[in-house]
Design a protein around this nucleic acid. Structure first.
Length: 734
RNA sequence: GCGUCUUUAGCUCAGUGGUAGAGCGUUCCGUUCACAUCGGAAAGGCCGUAGGUUCGAUCCCUACAAGACGCACCA
């Protein structure tokens, strides 16, 4: 009897040692599994690319949830004899990392602009290297059986090549264009962001009604109104039927009289306010559309720092928040203020990362055209390429209702703004040269893998949206653009991707786009979405609430197996869940239960040679059948990704059938010396079967016990075969 | 405005076309040997509301209510 079994199960003593054992075996790497004969060279393939954690810091509990789920899938399929690859990596997370390091520098009293691009990037690299080390350590603690020999990074050399290759191809195909369009400018982060990086916040503000000539107009943003020389009303609005479209009137406005033009368009809702509005095409999406429609003039009012331009005359140079009240005061003095509603609730667009209030602006940026027909893809657009595989069922989203959500999003998709005015990221592979030294205007443009030959070329200083590179993640990690890379051939399309539903659009959709377009293949067959993990009160984990829980601390106290079970049992796909330490405690008790049951079985079967084909008495036979039936059931459920049910069933069977009934019954038999062989064989066989089936969920303790079992020529449990009783393929006990 | 999800025991959640389950919690009883990180037992739910389909609905359909979320708009 191993002395360790005389004490309660101690995960701390076990986990590090066991992980090392796994790592040294090399079995995380499917090639090693084949080389060592535990996997057949032509076995089916199962592959998952780890959603790369942002290289901005440490992993939180949500990651632990994701890692537990994926490791469970991976271990199950590895035990099914498949060529199984789980590939790790980290994401450079452009804006997130850039702003994080910027903040760190600020604390040191350093400004980004002062130290320059090169020095800044050095600092970021240093920071990221540390974060990545921490992340790897954490993933190992959870027991993640990731193939570390294939570890990648979205910003490393190979991925950089992939990104440039993709950009050039899209550029050459006319899918990437540069244009002056309405974009979301973040004055705080000093960069453009995509629609998906906006977070709307409800804020109480003021809503002003001003006198504008013969009309009354409403606005929440008086500071944008300087250039408003178009007044819009609904064509059917009888109140204004005397005014004609295109009619010009002179009105007294902020800085004196201006000539205003009447525009009749249904964009102005009759029910809203007075039914009349003025427009600011440079700083509003809808106004921009109207301006395009009627070929109206557009004037910039606010600069990129959120300050008013000379058009504001006496207010020029003022920040918008300061200017707002002063402008209202001036209008008041001129008798143009009709009313002010103090309780107006507005949804303010803010930048996800910096928190800055988005100022829509017309700017020259790079975009991906999602509607252009692509000859090489049967004239389908990127939008269609995104819809098709999901519609046709080639990609299955679990839970299914997210497919609807996905379609909805794709159908409403606008061109994707991919340029960012930050330094950290993939620099846009485009170079400009001005032929005329006097104007300094870019008149030559070159897109390529490397800088063009000749003098005077300057690379576009902008970097790409982080999702541009992560969109290529399933194949850039496997060797693309080398279409003959063995990993790409073997492991793509990947089997499953397992992110939270909140990045269905940002990431999943972009991966389908990139994969469909660049390699004409789906990126994954199944999207298994998980929900958001919240605290016990149902609040999101966040820094401001200071309700964070460190998964490593939980593991230190209760063990990785207990944490993993608590993250799996009863948490269905796409469902949010509350983290409760009680649940972890319950499964750490379960760990101990397994431990002690193993001790009992080992103790009572130590001098017993388990026959290959044991003869069971009647009740043991029934018990044996019961477990076989359970196995058939859970194997099916595992293949259907219902591991949240399987884990619970195994828990229940182990505790309330194996421990409470089978073990108790065996005690009686051994004591009375009746059918002892049957009892002992059953104990041993059921324990081994249960260890195998529990292994994907609780890898450490099951492996630890497995290591002490008296079985000849046994391998690591992680590469043992998942039991299939239907085929009557039994182990070879002593 | 368009759309999605949730509503089951005190709490957190599974689940099934034939009048319900788990974990934790509560109460009681027990336990010298695999395990006090234990065993046995009990209490506790007209499965959000109202209709419909059905021999029969918690499960399917419709409406409603409450809560959460997504998208668009917000002059």
């Amino acid at each position: 009897m191993d002395a360790r079994f005389l004490k309660p199960y101690n995960p701390k003593e076990t986990e590090g040692k066991i992980y090392q054992l796994w790592e040294e075996s090399g079995f995380f790497n499917p090639d090693v599994c084949i080389a060592k004969g535990v996997t057949k060279p032509k076995a089916d393939v199962f592959s998952i690319i780890l959603p790369p954690p942002n290289a901005t810091g440490v992993l939180h509990l949500g990651h632990a949830l994701e890692d537990s789920m994926q490791d469970t899938m991976i271990r199950y399929n590895r035990m099914q004899g498949k060529r199984t690859l789980w590939l790790p990596g980290t994401d450079h997370a452009a804006i997130a990392t850039d702003s994080k390091v910027t903040k760190i520098l600020e604390k040191e009293g350093l400004k980004k602009k002062d130290i320059g691009r090169e020095k800044f990037l050095e600092r970021v690299d240093e920071f990221v290297a540390n974060s990545r080390k921490t992340i790897v350590k954490q993933l190992k603690k959870v027991g993640a059986s990731l193939d570390w020999s294939r570890e990648t990074f979205t910003l490393d050399e190979k991925r950089n090549l992939a990104v440039r290759t993709a950009f050039k191809k899209m550029y050459d195909d006319g899918l990437i264009y540069r244009g002056n369009r309405m974009v979301n400018w973040d004055p705080k982060g000093q960069t453009v962001i995509s629609d998906d990086e906006i977070v709307y916040e409800e804020r109480k503000g003021k809503f002003y009604t001003f006198k504008y000539g013969p009309f009354e107009i409403g606005t929440a943003r008086p500071e944008t109104k300087f250039g408003d020389k178009y007044v819009v009303m609904h064509p059917d609005d009888k109140r204004y039927s005397k005014w004609k479209h295109g009619e010009k009137i002179t009105v007294e406005w902020i800085n004196g009289p201006i000539e205003a033009t009447i525009i009749k368009d249904p964009a102005s809702e009759m029910e809203f306010g007075t039914g009349v509005m003025t427009i600011t095409p440079w700083h509003s999406h809808i106004d921009f559309q109207l301006a395009e429609k009627y070929k109206l003039e557009k004037e910039q009012i606010i600069d990129q720092y959120g300050k008013l331009l000379p058009i504001a005359k006496e207010f020029a140079g003022m920040k918008i928040t300061d200017a707002r009240e002063k402008i209202v005061e001036k209008l008041k003095a001129k008798g143009l203020v009709i009313s002010i509603d103090e309780n107006y609730v507005n949804r303010v667009a803010t930048a996800e990362r910096s928190g800055g209030i988005i100022e829509p602006q017309i700017m020259l940026q790079w975009f991906v055209d999602v509607n252009k027909k692509i000859p090489a893809r049967n004239d389908k657009s990127l939008k269609e390429l995104m819809l098709e595989p999901v519609q046709e069922g080639k990609i299955k989203i679990i839970p299914k209702h997210f497919e609807k959500v996905y379609f909805n999003w794709v159908l409403n998709l606008h061109d994707w703004c991919i340029s960012r005015q930050i330094w950290y990221g993939h620099q846009i592979p485009v170079w400009y040269r001005s032929t005329s030294l006097t104007t300094g205007k870019e008149s030559e443009i070159y897109c390529g893998m490397e800088a063009p030959k000749g003098d005077g070329w300057e690379q576009d200083p902008d970097t790409l949206d982080t999702w541009f590179s992560s969109g290529m993640w399933t194949f850039s990690t496997l060797g693309w653009p080398d279409m003959n890379a063995p990993d790409l051939k073997n492991f793509h399309p990947t089997s499953v991707i397992n992110p939270g539903y909140e990045i269905l659009f940002m990431w999943i959709a972009r991966m389908i786009l990139m994969s469909q377009y660049l390699i004409n293949e789906i990126p994954f067959k199944t999207v298994y979405l998980h929900g958001i993990l919240r605290d016990a009160k149902g609040q999101k984990f966040s820094k401001s609430l200071n309700n964070g829980v460190d998964p490593i601390e939980i593991i230190e106290e209760y063990g990785a197996d207990a944490l993993r079970m608590s993250m799996i049992v009863g948490i269905g796909p796409g469902a949010d869940s509350k983290f409760d330490i009680q649940k972890v405690k319950a499964y750490s008790k379960f760990s101990n239960k397994i431990w002690n049951a193993a001790r009992f079985v080992l103790d009572n079967t130590k001098d017993f040679a388990v026959p290959l084909d044991p003869v069971y008495d009647e009740e043991d036979k029934a018990t044996d059948e019961e477990l076989k039936n359970l196995l058939t059931e859970i194997t099916k459920e595992m293949d259907e990704y219902k591991f949240y049910i399987v884990a619970e069933k195994l828990y229940h069977y182990f505790w309330h059938t194996f421990a409470d009934i089978t073990i108790e019954r065996s005690k009686k038999k051994i004591l009375e010396n009746k059918n002892v062989d049957s009892a002992k064989a059953l104990l041993f066989n059921q324990l081994t079967t249960l260890l195998k089936t529990l292994h994907p969920f609780m890898p450490f303790i099951t492996e630890e016990i497995w290591q002490t079992l008296p079985i000849k020529n046994k391998n690591l449990l992680m590469v043992e075969k998942w039991p299939h009783f239907a085929k009557a393929s039994r182990d070879k006990p002593l």
